[in-house]
């Protein structure tokens, strides 16, 4: 029995050692849509849902690195990163402890600020499950929170085929070409799904509290701008129908927290992959527009 247990112990040790090595290696090469967001701290941040994840590029917004760096797109998805205690804790862990020259672009939409029931889906997703937000490399993310098994982290061709470019700044650039028929189908499905949510999600109390806490935190680190990004007309009609006072609410929250509110919700010049996710070209234009406005409002110095 002793001989067997020794053999078993040696075997388990060897296996675990090799496995741990394999967990650390892809941390250098591999990228997925969220991994770069959990490696090291940052000085400036974009927060919000997948709308911000796909539409806002830190490298285009602040190309010369004027603001406290790194400038990270720390937006995820509607389920992963609605404003709340979980997101607040993750943001607090990510931010540098010193400095007040940051820029904080805080994307808002009704689903990020309203809840429909007591359940908070984000608690069981990445931000709720992760313990270490700043390890670099971060094997905890690779092991538990990567949405892929370890072997897929070694198949680099999956990144090429993915239709999404994962920038180190956290921006997910959606380069996929969309079949018109599929897009129509996606839009129709999305309208139905969102309308169902909008009918149920009517309570802003919990998320608004944490949203204000988040703004207060950002305020100590730099300039805070609340941003409502453009969406397709179908989505706009839905949000206007179910949340007609949303812009006024954001105006008052911004004023109360000495923040700005930049509302692009009704801007019609952008193209979308589906009902509210921007295509690559539109995301670049939108990020350039944010850069232009930052310069125009003298928040960012004019570039050469």
């Amino acid at each position: 029995m002793v001989k067997f247990l020794i053999k078993l112990t040696v075997f388990v040790t060897v296996v675990l050692t090799v496995w741990l090595v394999l967990l650390f290696i892809p941390s250098n090469d591999y990228q997925d849509r969220f991994k770069m967001k959990f490696e090291g701290q940052c000085g400036s941040m974009i927060t919000g849902s997948s709308r911000a994840l796909l539409a806002m590029s830190p490298d285009i917004i602040d190309p010369n690195g004027f603001f406290a760096d790194p400038f990270l797109n720390f937006a995820f998805t509607q389920k992963t990163s609605p404003y709340g205690e979980t997101y607040y804790n993750a943001i607090a862990a990510k931010l540098n402890s010193s400095g007040n020259n940051g820029i904080f672009l805080v994307e808002v939409n009704p689903l990020a600020l309203y809840t429909g029931s007591d359940s908070l889906p984000e608690e069981n997703l990445i931000l709720g499950r992760l313990h270490f937000f700043n390890l670099n490399p971060n094997p905890e993310y690779v092991l538990i929170n990567s949405e892929r098994p370890l072997y897929q982290l070694y198949i680099k061709s999956s990144k090429v085929k993915s239709g999404t470019v994962y920038h180190m700044s956290g921006w997910n650039e959606n380069t996929a070409s969309v079949d018109t028929v599929l897009r129509k189908q996606k839009i129709a499905e999305s309208v139905v799904a969102h309308e169902k949510l909008f009918k149920e999600w009517r309570d802003p109390s919990y998320r608004l509290y944490w949203f204000s806490r988040t703004l207060e935190l950002f305020k100590t680190k730099g300039k805070v701008i609340i941003v409502r990004v453009p969406v397709r007309p179908e989505m706009r009609a839905l949000e206007e129908k179910y949340y007609p006072g949303f812009d006024q609410l954001m105006d008052s929250v911004a004023t109360a927290n000495s923040a700005l509110y930049w509302n692009y919700f009704r801007d019609d010049q952008y193209d979308f992959y589906d009902i509210h996710h921007m295509s690559s070209e539109s995301a670049k234009r939108f990020s350039s527009e944010l850069n232009r406005r930052l310069v125009h409002e003298r928040i960012l110095p004019k570039q050469n």
């Binding site: 796909l54 998805t77 897929q152 061709s157 085929k161 993915s162 239709g163 999404t164 589906d274």
Partner: peptide, 11 residues
């Protein structure tokens, strides 16, 4: 979700 394909030839 937004065009990401994970089943390539290697898979």
């Amino acid at each position: 979700g937004y065009g990401e394909s994970i089943l390539n030839k290697v898979e």
